[in-house]
C-alpha cells in the first residue's frame, strides 16, 4: 500500500480567551486521530484549552500575487485607527 497519512493544520486556543491560532501541522489518518495527535504534539507544555484541525488540502488561501489589491487599499484608511484622532488631554482617558 504506501499511502502517506494526510497532512492537517492545527489551531489551538490558549488559556486566556484568545482566538485559535495556527501552531503547526502533523499527519493523521483521520480527523479524530488528528485531534488526538495535536493534543500529544502541540499541548505538551500546557499550551491549550481547545483544538481545531483542518485537513491542509481544504484550506483556501489568498494568492501572493493578489497582495496589492487585497491588502493595500486598507493602508489609506487611517481614520479607522484610534490614533488618527487628537483628543485634548483635558478630556481625560478615552
Amino acid at each position: 500500500m504506501k499511502h502517506e497519512w494526510p497532512l492537517w493544520e492545527i489551531f489551538i486556543r490558549g488559556q486566556h480567551g484568545m482566538s485559535h491560532r495556527h501552531v503547526g501541522s502533523l499527519h493523521a489518518p483521520d480527523a479524530e486521530m488528528a485531534i488526538k495527535n495535536a493534543r500529544d504534539v502541540y499541548t505538551r507544555r500546557n499550551e491549550g484549552v481547545s483544538i481545531w484541525v483542518v485537513e491542509a488540502r481544504n484550506i483556501t488561501a489568498t494568492a501572493p500575487g493578489e497582495k496589492g489589491p487585497m491588502f493595500e487599499p486598507s493602508e489609506s484608511k487611517v481614520y479607522r485607527h484610534p490614533t488618527f484622532f487628537d483628543i485634548p488631554d483635558e478630556v481625560g482617558h478615552m
Binding site: 497519512w5 502533523l26 499527519h27 493523521a28 488526538k36 495527535n37 500529544d40 504534539v41 505538551r44
Partner: peptide, 8 residues
Amino acid sequence: PVLEEDIA
C-alpha cells in the same frame, strides 16, 4: 512507526 505515535 510514525513520529506522532512516538510522541503520544
